[in-house]
Design a protein around this nucleic acid. Structure first.
Length: 548
DNA sequence: CACTGAAGCTGAGTAGGCGG
DNA sequence: CCGCCTACTCAGCTTCAGTG
């Protein structure tokens, strides 16, 4: 049974309580900059460029004990440790992560449609994030917890930020427009209006199509003009000259959020508008060591949540050639988080490298989180293959080797009847048939591999524990082990199920059902899961050995 | 024995050819 | 244009060998 949709539309830029604190945060941040400089330059006018320069220098030295060029390993995990210490009351110096890492994260954000350090508030629904945990902590020390404050201060030309404009300025904030409203294929049904996402987009539109007689555009087209032009071009099948003019739809009214059900926690994905039950950054925030925030267009996460409140989230998308996603080097498994050994100098365009990474991730995540695929795909036994080989020979002798005698339905029906319990489909049988043809062409007959012989042997010995049952047992064992370990470490009392098993509260598998629409496809209580497994007991019995 | 890496198997997906 | 078919690729899985 499908659980309620987890997507929440959070259309406001800020929560109400956040909004109410913004003004005071702005005051606080400005005051701290000013106070800092006043301690050693009491008479310097705040409007002086030198004032801004000194403020930055002072802030940098106050927040860092190491040069900002600290290379490589001065990463977010250092900062996370610091943040944790600070939370515990032990203030520590901040170390700025190396610029290359920061640039890379900013680039990933941009490639996902985000705007790094917008010069002014971006119209339309969306949300802010800090670029890295470091920036969140740096802002916190400035007295700012709301990223929108930074944009507002820059937008109004706050004197202490005079030279801190631009995409490289610290602390960077990142704006993610709600994808439902950013360059949608259709105009949303609710009342609202169009705006350019950024002033740059507006300028670009004016440059490209402003004053165009061909398109009937005014000198400075409005966002609505561009939207209408875009629709006309797409309707005609013409090249969409407006494709890089970012438009956002701004709803007149903002719908209320779905209220959270008992036990749910509102956590956002970080990289887009979606609000989810679990934090894919695993508490580290975007850019953190275990951040599993993937490409929103390839949404697929697994979660497991334990009684002690810990939630582990893993991105289970498969690595793809030419699509660098460094977070795929991290995967959670039996022994916690692990890093892919060959991540250094990894070539995202090398097929062999990708295959190896995929293999590592697939196995590690599958062994911990379980299988993705729901249906079983048993090997063909030697006996099965002999039967298929015979069908092929008959078809070949009848002059049509590429298709069976009779039709495909007859073959599928015949095979499933012969095996007494298998449920192969036509598509599967067609694939298998083509491999039978290959076997005959290359080796003169069906080839039974060692693995398939093993399958035959097991069938003969009537090993009847179903695959599902084996999976269930393995999964429970893993959970039991994990919970026992956690209990040992934390002294947390684990929950014990009906059958004496220690278990997490629940686990869910989430996959994308559409390009922008994550859907929870499976939430099962342990009882339901067990019941379902028992219902699918295997009934196959291949009594006859293949004789090879 | 636990763990890891990789080979190899199955079925689904997809591009392209072909005939009606 | 549509449906059918073929050939090929890929994802996800099982199994087994290697390693410490």
């Amino acid at each position: 049974m499908a659980p309620p949709q987890t997507k929440k539309q959070k259309l406001s830029t800020l929560a109400d309580d956040e909004r109410s604190t913004s003004a005071s945060e702005q005051m606080t941040a400005t005051r701290r900059f000013i106070d800092l400089v006043r301690t050693f330059a009491p008479d310097l006018p705040e409007s002086s460029p030198l004032f801004t320069h000194l403020a930055e220098q002072s802030l940098a030295s106050a927040l860092s004990t190491e040069p900002s060029s600290t290379a490589g390993l001065a990463s977010d995990d250092v900062v996370n440790t610091q943040a944790a210490s600070i939370t515990a009351g032990h203030a520590q110096p901040l170390i700025r992560p190396d610029q290359a890492t920061r640039d890379a994260i900013a680039q990933i954000a941009r490639s996902n449609g985000a705007i790094v350090n917008p010069e002014q508030p971006v119209p339309g629904p969306g949300r802010y994030r800090w670029l890295m945990t470091y920036d969140r902590e740096m802002a916190r020390r400035m007295g700012v917890t709301d990223p929108s404050v930074i944009t507002s201060m820059r937008a109004r030309g706050d004197p202490v930020f005079t030279s801190a404009h631009g995409p490289g300025a610290d602390p960077p904030v990142v704006w993610y427009s709600d994808r439902t409203y950013l360059n949608p294929t259709r105009q949303p049904s609710e009342p609202g209006h169009w705006e350019f996402q950024t002033p740059d987009a507006q300028e670009w539109a004016a440059t490209q199509v402003g004053g165009s007689e061909e398109h009937g555009m005014p000198a400075r087209p409005s966002a609505s003009d561009i939207w209408n032009l875009r629709q006309r071009l797409l309707t005609r099948g013409a090249f969409n000259i407006t494709h890089d003019m970012a438009l956002v739809f701004v709803p007149d009214e903002q719908p209320d959020d779905r209220s959270l059900t008992d036990g749910e926690v509102e956590v956002d994905l970080g990289e887009d508008d979606r609000v989810f039950r679990y934090d894919p950054t695993n508490g580290d925030g975007p850019g953190g060591e275990n951040d599993q925030t993937g490409n929103p267009d390839n949404f697929y996460h697994d979660f497991i949540r334990f009684e002690d409140g810990t939630t582990i989230v893993c991105d289970r998308i498969t690595a793809k050639k030419g699509d660098p996603q460094p977070h795929l080097f991290r995967a959670y498994g039996e022994n916690g988080w692990s890093t892919y050994r060959r991540s250094a100098d990894f070539d995202w365009n090398n097929a062999a490298s990708i295959k190896s990474l995929k293999g590592w991730r697939d196995q590690r995540l599958r062994r911990y989180f379980g299988l993705k695929r729901t249906e079983d795909r048993p090997d063909y036994s030697g006996r099965d293959l002999k039967w298929l080989g015979k069908q092929y020979e008959e078809a070949r002798d009848a002059g049509h080797p590429s298709s069976p005698v009779g039709d495909w339905d007859k073959l599928v029906e015949g095979f499933n009847a012969f095996t007494k319990g298998q449920h192969r489909g036509e598509k599967a049988m067609r694939s298998k048939w083509s491999r039978i043809i290959d076997d005959f062409a290359k080796k003169g007959g069906v080839v039974v591999t060692k693995r398939q012989k093993t399958k035959s042997k097991r069938d003969k010995e009537k090993v009847v524990i179903s695959v599902q049952e084996q999976r269930r047992i393995a999964k429970e064992e893993r959970r039991e082990k994990e919970l026992a370990e956690r209990e040992k470490q934390n002294g947390v009392k684990a929950k014990v199920g009906r059958h004496g098993k220690v278990m997490p509260t629940y686990s869910v598998i989430v996959s994308k059902a559409g390009k922008n629409e994550p859907v929870v496809v499976d939430i099962k209580s342990q009882a339901e899961e067990k019941k379902g497994d028992e219902d699918e007991e295997e009934s196959e019995e291949d009594a006859e050995e293949d004789g090879q």
